[in-house]
Amino acid sequence: EPLWIRPDAPSRCTWQLGRPASESPHHHTAPAKSPKILPDILKKIGDTPMVRINKIGKKFGLKCELLAKCEFFNAGGSVKDRISLRMIEDAERDGTLKPGDTIIEPTSGNTGIGLALAAAVRGYRCIIVMPEKMSSEKVDVLRALGAEIVRTPTNARFDSPESHVGVAWRLKNEIPNSHILDQYRNASNPLAHYDTTADEILQQCDGKLDMLVASVGTGGTITGIARKLKEKCPGCRIIGVDPEGSILAEPEELNQTEQTTYEVEGIGYDFIPTVLDRTVVDKWFKSNDEEAFTFARMLIAQEGLLCGGSAGSTVAVAVKAAQELQEGQRCVVILPDSVRNYMTKFLSDRWMLQKGFLKEEDLTEKKPWWWHLRVQELGLSAPLTVLPTITCGHTIEILREKGFDQAPVVDEAGVILGMVTLGNMLSSLLAGKVQPSDQVGKVIYKQFKQIRLTDTLGRLSHILEMDHFALVVHEQIQYHSTGKSSQRQMVFGVVTAIDLLNFVAAQERDQK
Rank of each mutant, 00 (worst) to 15 (best):
L254Y: 08
V264W: 00
N424C: 08
H480Q: 14
I247W: 06
I398H: 08
H474V: 11
L464S: 04
D510F: 15
Y479K: 11
T261G: 11
A292V: 09
R297N: 00
F448V: 15
D277Q: 06
E360W: 15
A321Q: 12
G266L: 00
Q487E: 15
Y342D: 01
R350C: 07
Q439G: 09
F295D: 02
I463K: 12
A407N: 02
G414S: 15
E360Y: 14
V420R: 00
G308K: 00
A407P: 10
G268Q: 00
L426G: 14
M490R: 15
P436N: 01
G418Y: 07
F271M: 05
L426Q: 07
N341V: 00
E412C: 15
F295A: 02
P243N: 07
V410T: 15
A470Q: 08
S485I: 11
V275K: 01
K320E: 11
L500W: 07
E265I: 00
A316E: 10
G312W: 03
G309H: 01
K345P: 00
T257S: 15
C392G: 07
V315H: 06
V443K: 09
E250N: 15
R509K: 14
I477P: 02
K446A: 03
G418H: 14
F492W: 13
T389C: 04
P368L: 13
I247V: 15
V495T: 14
V443G: 14
V319G: 04
D438R: 10
K320G: 11
H372Q: 13
Y445T: 10
V504Q: 09
K449H: 02
Q329C: 13
L358F: 11
V409D: 01
I267Y: 06
T496C: 07
E465R: 10
D270H: 06
G403Q: 09
D337M: 03
A497C: 08
L429N: 14
I239D: 03
M490P: 14
Y342H: 04
F285L: 15
V386T: 12
A506Y: 04
D411T: 14
L460R: 05
Q447A: 13
G403W: 12
L417Q: 14
E475I: 09
S481P: 04
R330M: 11
Q487P: 11
L429G: 11
Q406P: 02
N341D: 02
Q256V: 14
I416Y: 11
H468D: 08
